[in-house]
Design a protein around this nucleic acid. Structure first.
Lengths: 148, 148
DNA sequence: ATGTATGCAAAACATTTGCACCTGG
DNA sequence: CCAGGTGCAAATGTTTTGCATACAT
């Protein structure tokens, strides 16, 4: 992603926007809340206000650059770079690990179901909540506990 | 649903609890926010505090009596009686109409996908956002506009 | 009687907004 | 230069909580 991409979207290439984009691209976590983005930038010495983080992420969402998720139980929303193709999510409720997947059979059935009811499908989200086999040894577990 | 059911769940049979349960059972809307429940009760002359509505609905959720949904875009959650079997939701983004459906093929695929990743599935939710063919004449449209 | 529930008001929480100042093109 | 972007603080909307009172058993 480069400054030209922002320009193309009609957004000025500002420092906060570039830094947020950069973070989303380089961060290990593919899904981050506004607060997490804010803190990560803060830790990196970037003084970018939380309000700006929200504004920029919302603009990116509108521009189709990021996807915003409202995972169940969570009042907070998380953002993900929209660089990859559509996918759904499989989440471990114990360690917070998130697996992305895509299944043609499910996608196809959804279309059929919508049609059967006379609806034209615009969007959908499928979240599978599960337990991974070995969450205690999972790389995410410790970090997850901290956030609880 | 009767007072015995509440007792069985270890909940005292109080006036607010009975009224909320009654409302969820008799209301036309199968999905209601806490605020909507509060207002409906208020209109019916019941003086039940909003905090109580939240507390009771949360207890009902814990007891498995109701299901709480966090529909996309919505910061508010809606509650639904858990009396019927599991189902997913097809929502019209124009009029707010909600269709409940269940599809064995989708359910089955989810199990397979979870297993493939070594996860044991606990729960899931699938929301399909769509447009219904004739939302302007839809019975829900007017009411929906008011709430916007 | 006593442990639980309730109502109210205040707090908490994520998110948005108003406004004065700053900055990219 | 100036429209648009930013930071801060204040506002918002939903949900939760503390506490004194009321109620179910």
């Amino acid at each position: 992603m480069e400054s030209a991409d922002l320009k193309r979207l009609g957004l000025k290439v500002t420092h906060p926007r570039m830094k947020i984009l950069e973070l989303l691209e380089t961060s290990e976590a593919r899904h981050m809340s506004a607060e997490e983005v804010y803190k990560a930038l803060s830790n990196a010495g970037e003084e970018i206000g939380l309000a700006t983080v929200y504004r920029v992420l919302t603009q990116f969402e509108t521009a189709g650059l990021v996807i915003r998720h409202y995972f169940e139980n969570g009042r907070i929303s998380v953002f993900e770079l929209a660089e990859t193709a559509h996918h759904d999510h499989l989440l471990c409720v114990k360690c917070g690990k998130i697996i992305e997947f895509s299944d043609n059979i499910i996608e196809e059935r959804q279309k059929v179901i919508a049609e059967q009811h006379g609806f034209s499908i615009k969007d959908h989200c499928l979240y599978i909540y599960a337990e991974c086999t070995d969450y205690k040894n999972c790389e995410y577990y410790e970090q997850y506990l901290q956030n609880q």
